[in-house]
Design a protein around this nucleic acid. Structure first.
Lengths: 400, 400
DNA sequence: AAGGCTTAATTAACGCCGTTATTAAAGTGT
DNA sequence: ACACTTTAATAACGGCGTTAATTAAGCCTT
């Protein structure tokens, strides 16, 4: 039910967007390929492509060999038309990465966050330092930067300006977008880190080619990014996908959010380690941080029946949580990611699938593949970098 | 990321669709209203409206009073341009209703289903009899019928032809659309009954004006219809929204689906009555059917502490289930419906809201209104009747 | 009752854009 | 060199929304 007007100009913009998107995502293609796959006539494709080449967005990239007949030219998005910066604001560090439009990593910078609840200003300083560092490393000028995408581990409410609510950072309604934009004259996009990671998996990883996918991310916290009809689903105030605090065990363990029986309290790294400690009557797992402790637990499963049991229970809870996603969203794929999810999944994926099969309805379960993420944990910054690109593609290459 | 081509003709079709939809949903409106709200120029609106009037889809409906200046004409969708049939295939009856395009009920017919698992052919016979009956009652000809929408209590997989999987009817992959279309030469649309009821609430009831809404339906079974970005969400194989079989109490009561701890096993009418019976050490509630028994339980709460406790627990479970919907979908509204949901909600809505507040994250909870449906239980057929209309609006009034 | 004023609706000139049909370009193969 | 094939670019055409200018249709004042 689209109640927007459609004018004649918009026809061109939409076609520019369609062709540019196709070239970016399915890259290099000939004019013929584009005509066939979009249904546009060849002259229309040539015409639009001519525009795009004229604007420097697209370049010809070698001829395809022919066996009689004029060989067609491959076309691709010009990798150096612009560069994009992706920022990962995690709980322990700020990472800034710079990519060209072929998503080649050009430079990166890392800033650890020592305090548990860093001040927004400190994070902004790191972001600015990082931007300066990567542009210098890659020897690009400010004007070459298409935009900056920022993935934050917390709820990001989109509006006139994005506001960040992040319990774990101690942030409530921080106008991160404005704070950064005040210092750099660039388009700034802020989004939830789970969603940017999902976007990265969607374009370049396990989500390629699917219209309906759920990215289930397990780390210290637990979240999900949901793609419906090919579009990242945000909901009315952009907090959709808060899977971690759905109730799985009514009246169960108290979660750090205050409620009881949240999924996160069972399958978040902290919840798993807590359950293991309780199973061992209080003996804690040694290790400097959660990641090493969780890995120690997973390794211990080779010898310890207790560790095995805790992991089996974890697979049961996680599988039930995944089953809920399958029942509610009916996706083609559920992709398990996040650092803890990847570590657990490597060993537990079959058990998780089995548990999900037991709790989900048969029909949607059989339509769904449950698999591991392909991009690893560092893809938050990569996904963040796609935010300005998505904007460019949607606008048909017209920069604001 | 729209990869479809856009041609010049499509401009007109999209604008026809936009204006026609607006007139249908918000009409009557003047040409000026349409121009202002869509952003189209006045001549363009006049031009398109002229087309629509010429096609008989739109009629002028009186002038609006002016204080100086030519008075503008109100426009509305012609109520008798066509009629639509809506069919509700429930577990106990088949109901056929006929509406004009102002959604005025013109005629209806009811056929009880006595056997628990009716044969598809028997249901098809009822539908055909019903269509014949309502067209005769309303004195309309076959050619006046725009189409037939059918809402079925079961999973409806859309494809080349809709297939119905309905446990409660004992149907597995019944090609209901084909079976009906073989007998009547009309466009036939089949969809899940929860989704058609949600569609009815969306257009004419509690969902009006929201882009993101969840319709939580509680009856014997429990389901949900989810509207995302103004569109009914179906998922990859149209089974999205199977809320009833999400796990709420891990390892809890066995559900009729075979899994354990499903929401439906706690808040479905059967689950509630079972829990009440157990709380009364096996003493069953008297009553011919589930509906009278549930109402008896609700009335008993005035006197019986046990009944009160069971209902309070029900509100707790239901609130947690609603909280899960809020966390995952971040809707503007959660609308509680279904016969049991309406009966429970009348008394328990405050308790349900409170339970949801306790289990949902604060930010999305505060963005969400939880309310009762406005259309009652019989809206399944009304919603089904909107299916051919939705098709007509999307096509800009071009009948296939 | 007539002329002025205001708002609605239509008409006219214009420009954008994709389409089909035609022509030019750029290869292979004999 | 010539025929053949396939790609790319032109040219003529038609659909459609836009702005600007008219025309239509009502109030209000004198």
């Amino acid at each position: 039910m689209d109640l927007e007007r459609t004018t004649n100009r918009i026809v061109r913009q939409r076609n520019r967007s369609a062709l540019l998107s196709k070239l970016f995502l399915e890259g290099p293609l000939t004019r013929q390929d584009l005509a066939r796959s979009t249904g546009l006539s060849q002259p229309a494709v040539s015409n639009v492509v001519g525009d795009l080449i004229g604007a420097g967005l697209v370049v010809e990239a070698g001829a395809v060999e022919s066996d009689g007949g004029r060989p067609s030219m491959k076309l691709r998005v010009a990798p150096r038309y612009a560069v994009v910066a992706g920022v990962d604001v995690g709980e322990t560090r700020v990472r800034v990465e710079l990519f060209d439009l072929a998503m080649t990593l050009l430079a990166s910078a890392d800033y650890p966050l020592d305090s548990a609840g860093p001040a927004p200003e400190a994070v902004v300083r790191h972001i600015l330092s990082g931007l300066a560092a990567v542009t210098e490393q890659a020897a690009v000028s400010r004007a070459d930067i298409l935009g900056v995408g920022i993935g934050v581990s917390g709820v990001v409410v989109q509006g006139d300006e994005a506001l960040v609510h992040a319990q774990t950072l101690g942030w409530a309604g921080v106008p991160l977008e404005r704070l950064v934009r005040a210092e750099v004259d660039l388009p700034v996009h802020v989004d939830n880190g789970a969603k940017t990671l999902g976007q990265a998996e969607m374009w370049f990883g396990a989500g390629r080619g699917s219209r309906h996918a759920v990215f289930a991310l397990v780390g210290s916290g637990v979240g999900a990014a949901v793609v419906t009809n090919g579009v990242m689903y945000r909901g009315s105030s952009s907090s959709a996908g808060e899977w971690g605090h759905t109730t799985l065990v009514y009246g169960g363990r108290t979660c750090r959010c205050g409620a009881r029986g949240c999924l996160e309290a069972y399958v978040g790294a902290e919840g798993i380690l807590d359950r293991y400690r309780e199973a061992r009557r209080g003996r804690v797992v040694p290790g400097a941080d959660e990641e090493t402790r969780l890995n120690a637990l997973i390794e211990a499963a080779d010898d310890s029946a207790t560790a095995r049991r805790v992991l089996a229970e974890t697979a049961g809870y996680l599988g039930a949580g995944v089953a809920n996603l399958i029942n509610l969203f009916n996706p083609e794929r559920v992709v398990l990611g996040g650092w803890a999810g990847m570590a657990l999944g490597a060993r537990l994926l079959p058990a998780i699938r089995e548990a999900a099969a037991g709790q989900a309805l048969r029909q949607p379960y059989e339509q769904t593949e449950i698999e591991l993420g392909q991009l690893g944990v560092d893809a938050v910054a990569l996904g963040a970098a796609t935010l300005p690109i998505a904007q460019l593609l949607a606008a048909g290459g017209i920069r604001r």
